[in-house]
């Protein structure tokens, strides 16, 4: 056997191995699509992935069952808002902690770092009463404020600081020479240079908000105010039995657009993680 063929065989083995490994990652999506097009009784009774009859009506029934479009929009606007605000506030704070010397900055940093890993479960109970006092119960405010100022916001600040630390200072000094204010340097010089970090942090923050489950569960009552994760868990009939076919169809509607965006932007996403130094 020549070295060449040997290498070829190794390569084929690798690919077969990876394909096998990919099954549990890919099959759920295929099964979801198949289930989304089946009738309620069919979801389990038939093992076939191809529905015996295609029920496109599942997709319209979702919208009759609950205000799914509104819920979709809720998730989307909250995630966009949280991401935008987090990027702005976290990059500003991160910039100050990396570049500006001021007494107390070390203390602020320490405070933030100690909260870096704290899950929201730790503070959810007092936050429940705080939100009640502020009149934010059954509104979207907790879903915006808690990620922004909780561990996710802190994480974003910390990552931005790490990125700015690694950024060469020269360009900013040139900006100072041109008479830009501190804010001007941050906004006009540093921020444009930190696009990879911003997009990596932005992606993480967006996903965090998009996936948020505990907070909506605790803070939101009205079905019109539900976010997608809550809405997906809410496809049950009168007596609490899941409406599998609708649940799967709704899940498909929630997942597919994200998958498409991801596939289109996958190279940039991986690159931004590589360039941002989100690795410590």
């Amino acid at each position: 056997m020549t070295y060449r063929t040997q290498q070829k065989i190794t390569r084929i083995c690798w690919i077969i191995g990876l394909c096998a490994l990919a099954i549990p990652f890919v099959f759920p999506f295929i099964w979801m699509l198949s289930g989304a097009l089946k009738g309620q009784a069919d979801v389990f009774s038939s093992a076939s992935l191809i529905p015996s009859k295609i029920h496109w009506s599942n997709f319209s029934e979702i919208f009759a069952y609950q205000p799914f479009a509104r819920q979709y929009f809720n998730s989307l606007y909250i995630a966009v808002l949280v991401t935008g605000l987090t990027l702005f506030l976290a990059s500003m704070a991160g910039y100050a902690l990396a570049r500006l010397r001021f007494s107390g900055s070390a203390l602020v940093l320490l405070l933030l770092i100690s909260a870096l890993m704290m899950p929201e479960e730790v503070t959810i109970i007092p936050n429940f009463f705080l939100m009640k006092k502020l009149g934010f119960m059954n509104t979207h405010m907790p879903l915006i404020l808690l990620p922004l100022f909780g561990s996710q916001g802190v994480m974003a600040t910390f990552l931005m600081r790490q990125f700015f630390l690694a950024l060469p200072k020269e360009l900013e000094e040139a900006g100072r020479m041109d008479g830009l204010s501190r804010f001007g340097v941050y906004f006009k010089v540093a921020l444009p240079l930190s696009r990879p970090a911003l997009s990596a942090v932005g992606i993480i923050t967006f996903l965090f908000s998009w996936n948020l489950f505990l907070e909506p569960l605790v803070f939101v009552n009205d079905i019109e105010l539900f976010t997608l994760p809550l809405a997906l868990a809410n496809f049950t009939d009168t007596y609490g039995l899941p409406l599998w076919h609708l649940q799967l169809a709704a899940t498909a509607l929630a997942v597919i657009p994200m998958l498409i965006v991801y596939i289109l932007a996958q190279r940039q996403i991986v690159e931004s993680f590589a360039l941002s130094g989100v690795k410590g």
């Binding site: 500003m92 100022f149 802190v154």
Partner: peptide, 30 residues
């Protein structure tokens, strides 16, 4: 130096204020 300190605090204050209200406060409360 003073100016730098002021900008520094201004830059961190939005996130720090929120952090105090929605994280540190509740943490003490818990």
């Amino acid at each position: 130096k003073a100016r730098e300190a002021i900008s520094g605090w201004l830059f961190v204050s939005p996130i720090l204020t929120g952090f105090m209200i929605f994280f540190v406060g509740p943490l003490i409360a818990v």
